[in-house]
């Protein structure tokens, strides 16, 4: 039954992807790519990747859609249609088919999906499953690998997010170049939902609960799917919702710009700082075991701190990016 469902979902993915490429209405394409991400997330869930499914849903369907829509508001909603432009282009088609064909050719010697004897399940992975209870002592192995065994990757990931944050700030400029506006003008220019009573009342009621959920995901990542990244995305989503409902200016008043910039930098520094403290205490970089008397307690402490760092930077960057786009919209 699961198999049939999986095949159905995967086929649907392909159909949606074709629809995205063919649509000349970019608004429709963005909405479809949100659906694409949700379908992808369901597939991941069927393949036992709960953490990845949560992230793909929050990032692909949530954050990416918001970003694309803000960008569309600033550019154009339709692709320009050229005479004969709808036709397929041959050279790209050949390149794409060659690439895809090569991969399909390779698949016939791939290990079968789900085969427990596949090489992937032999060498490194079983070691993680066997040793996590003793070495890290938390139930979620994904968090253990992410935060500790391969913590350096995650440090890199935080810095990728940080780079994107300062990059968007640098490219879209730091400040308003707007002259002072009266509150009536701001009201008139706001693209917010402030005038719609029902979304506003319902939405405002939800914001605290979303924030609470973000905190749960942040601190419960050791036991269930979740962690700093997902929590950061969810917390940012709550503030973004508030900004959409109440107007970007009130959203910025809630979390002012200087605070955001400090958040962006300090989360990354917290993560790296934990690593440096480990070095000062005589371990390797990111060797959390030296942080406490009992190594596994040190691991707990280390994971807690670095996940916090991830959460702070991610929510800071997402809000920074959102505001950078929204500010353009109000020009």
């Amino acid at each position: 039954m699961t198999l049939v469902f999986g095949v159905f979902l995967l086929t649907l993915l392909v159909i949606v992807a074709v629809a995205i490429v063919r649509s000349t209405n970019l608004f429709a394409a963005v909405m479809l790519s949100g659906i694409f991400s949700l379908l992808m997330a369901v597939n991941f869930f069927l393949l036992d990747a709960a953490d990845v499914a949560l992230t793909e849903a929050a990032v692909g369907a949530g954050v990416a859609t918001v970003l694309f829509l803000s960008a569309l508001a600033l550019t154009a909603e339709h692709e320009q249609v050229r005479p004969g432009g709808a036709a397929l282009q041959w050279l790209p088609l050949v390149v794409a088919f060659a690439t895809g064909g090569l991969l399909i050719y390779a698949t016939f010697q791939n290990p079968v999906i789900g085969d427990p004897n596949a090489p992937v399940h032999q060498h490194v992975a079983p070691w993680y499953l066997e040793n996590t209870p003793e070495l890290i002592d938390i139930p979620n192995v994904v968090t253990a690998v992410l935060g500790s065994f391969r913590g350096f990757d995650t440090l890199g990931e935080v810095f990728v997010v940080f780079t994107a944050g300062i990059g968007v700030l640098s490219i879209l400029g730091l400040r308003h170049t707007l002259v002072e506006m009266t509150s009536a003008e701001i009201d008139a220019r706001q693209r917010s939902l402030r005038h719609h009573l029902i979304p506003r009342v319902v939405g405002r009621g939800m914001v605290p609960f979303i924030l609470l959920f973000a905190l749960y995901v942040q601190f419960h990542g050791e036991y269930s799917p979740g962690g700093g990244f997902q929590a950061g995305a969810i917390a940012a989503a709550a503030i973004i919702l508030y900004s959409l409902l109440e107007g970007d200016d009130r959203g910025r008043a809630l979390v002012p710009e200087w605070l955001l910039q400090i958040m962006v930098a300090s989360g990354a520094l917290l993560f790296g700082g934990v690593g440096v403290v480990c070095m000062l205490l005589g371990g390797s970089f990111l060797d959390y075991s030296v942080l406490a008397e009992v190594p596994s307690e040190g691991q707990h402490l280390g994971l807690l701190l670095i996940e916090l760092g991830v959460g702070i930077t991610v929510s800071g960057v997402l809000l920074t990016v959102f505001h950078a786009f929204a500010r353009r919209a109000s020009r």
């Binding site: 990747a49 990845v52 399940h121 993680y128 192995v141 994904v142 253990a144 690998v145 990757d153």
Partner: peptide, 11 residues
């Protein structure tokens, strides 16, 4: 199931 590919894809 294998945790490692999941970690990589999260990144």
């Amino acid at each position: 199931s294998n945790p490692l590919p999941q970690v990589l894809i999260l990144t």
